[in-house]
Design a binder for these strands. Structure first.
Lengths: 344, 344
DNA sequence: CTGAAAGCGCTAACAT
DNA sequence: ATGTTAGCGCTTTCAG
């Protein structure tokens, strides 16, 4: 960094004090309108650029919120981000996006990094391999507001924005059962993550409520990337299931592809339902049934809660942590409609 | 922010100077190993957290690079990000991601914001509505390194990492012609953006080289979102084209859907080729032919160039701007294979 | 190997 | 309405 124009340079040039320049630049109403305009004009002329670092250091406030994401490549996450931004920019806060690429280690590093950068609060979705939330202890100790969304720790005592994964899993499975399916396979990911576990529990409960026996052989846990999903589907196909409940849309699409390769039809031979309502869902053939998961809304709610917490903290008030559940719903398209197809 | 432990607190507790603490924390080899260990231990005990703000202010260096993205929701952008991170973390640099949501105005705001945060360099992909790069003048003036990638300004004199969009457009079109297509429609976006314009020019050249006349009626420029693409496809279908060259894979998938809705077959009646090699390409039916666009590599190259520029700047050396072209290639799957299908 | 002093650029108290 | 002074927390001379 070469020599930058500072407020002192402007002050010197104008024969006034740096304080006045600072106030003028921040449009403090105490400063005479004329002076203010002069300051802005001179700053412009001298190519002055505000130094956020110095300002934040002095103010002991960064007006920045950190975001810890497990990944950024999904439609869902992008929507959440959009929702957060919408709320946060309105309050003139910046955001600092980090992502862990599903690695717990990177999540820890990101948490420390954001703390060192003195963010005013964080919004987080846990990585796949995160085992506990000890790395957020420094935040709790300092009472720096945190809001968890989607991928949360079920037992932890903090603000959470989630959907009801249990009932989503239940309803998706129930829907398949109502289509006449009796042998429903389930492809999911690491069950230590709440979202997957809850859906799985919903799946099991639905089976039970409909007098179907749960079989471990019909469950595959994998990373949900293409290769893993192909393998999982192939192995499950050996069990001759008549339906698949897949925990995300991308994997569901891959699953359908593999089913087709085996010369089977979807949904006639095997019904498939995904999760997330990604854009790809109605681009594939047959169009994918899925569970709609309102990312934008989740982002908005998470950000709104965080802003509330930050404000209350700034005025030394208490804030009651709460868990908020966002509505979600089944989106039935073609891939699961076995009964209709049979009729026709 | 409440009172944080500082290096002074540690110094007091240990009866040494803050300077030594600072050095110890930074593992400066001049400090006695014993002292160093004591410092680390005490820091840990006292819950010390390094203040990046203060440190950066003092060092006048943030070890942070800014990234200006047009959007974050594409596979391509995510890959670029991964490529950048790979290179940059190795050098212990942080990244600050911003995105303009294709708005030139937001791009300007982000550029200023990153400058105020004193990033050491930036990597940028221009927003759709950006008309010029005047907002980067402050960077040029301060010789803060910039690398543009993908969406660049063709005439500007700066480091650019691109693919040869012209020849990609040419080859995609040529491929369609070789499949026997004679009336090739083209769906693309704002032609002020180099990537779209160059592909378009390649398309035109390929037609000319193969004695096909260019018809304006076969071109539709739209935002490439779902609704716009549906409309564009419908309107183009009136011209009875026998092929579509669509400038991204998502839009190509939508295009295929619309073609199917019109009772036409892909590729038998109409061949389709996309662009980007998104993951959805081989999940749809028929599998999409496309142009592979190596995002990770592009990110790596962009970041490597930027790091070079930053280092040369720090040692006051000159750096010659250059344009680097990343290889790209046609990926032929099913959606464009008209001739084979006819035979069978 | 360690320390004293200064200063990065800004803003908040406390004047006036 | 404006100025003086001090300090946010760190690192970097310079000195020993």
């Amino acid at each position: 960094m070469q020599k930058e124009t500072t407020i002192y340079d402007i002050a010197d040039k104008l024969g006034i004090s740096a304080t006045t320049v600072s106030r003028g630049l921040n449009n403090n109403p105490r400063i005479n309108k004329n002076t203010r305009e002069k300051i802005h004009k001179t700053a412009e002329e001298m190519g002055y650029q505000h130094n956020t670092l110095a300002s934040n250091l002095r103010k002991r406030q960064t007006k920045t919120i950190g975001i810890l994401l497990h990944e950024v490549n999904s439609n869902f996450v992008t929507s959440v981000l959009a929702g957060i931004e919408k709320v946060v920019t309105k309050e003139h806060y910046d955001i600092l996006i980090t992502h862990s690429a599903e690695s717990g280690e990177r999540e820890i590093a990101n948490a420390t990094n954001l703390l060192n950068k003195r963010v005013d609060g964080i919004i987080v979705s846990l990585a796949m391999s995160t085992k506990n939330i000890d790395h957020f202890t420094p935040y709790f100790e300092r009472k720096i507001p945190i809001v968890f969304f989607d991928r949360v720790m079920n037992d932890a005592d903090c603000t959470k924005i989630i959907i009801n994964n249990f009932s989503c899993g239940y309803n998706a499975t129930k829907h398949l059962i109502e289509q006449g399916c009796k042998k429903i396979a389930h492809i999911t990911a690491d069950l230590t993550r709440n979202v997957y576990n809850d859906r799985f529990l919903g799946y099991k409960k639905a089976l039970k409520d409909h007098q179907l026996t749960y079989k471990k052989d019909l469950i595959k846990i994998c990373s949900l990337d293409k290769a893993a999903t192909i393998e999982a589907t192939r192995e499950l196909l050996i069990q001759k299931p008549d339906a698949f409940f897949v925990t995300n849309d991308f994997a569901a699409a891959v699953c359908i592809e593999v089913i087709h390769e085996h010369g089977l039809r979807v949904p006639e031979d095997i019904a498939v339902i995904g999760f997330n309502n990604d854009t790809l869902g109605d681009l594939i053939t047959p169009k994918l049934s899925t569970v709609d998961y309102p990312g934008i809304l989740m982002g908005e709610v998470a950000a709104t809660e965080l802003m509330k917490k930050i404000k209350l903290k700034n005025s030394n008030k208490k804030f009651a942590d709460q868990t908020m559940t966002i509505p979600s719903e089944l989106v039935i398209r073609e891939s699961s409609l076995k009964s209709q197809k049979k009729k026709s």
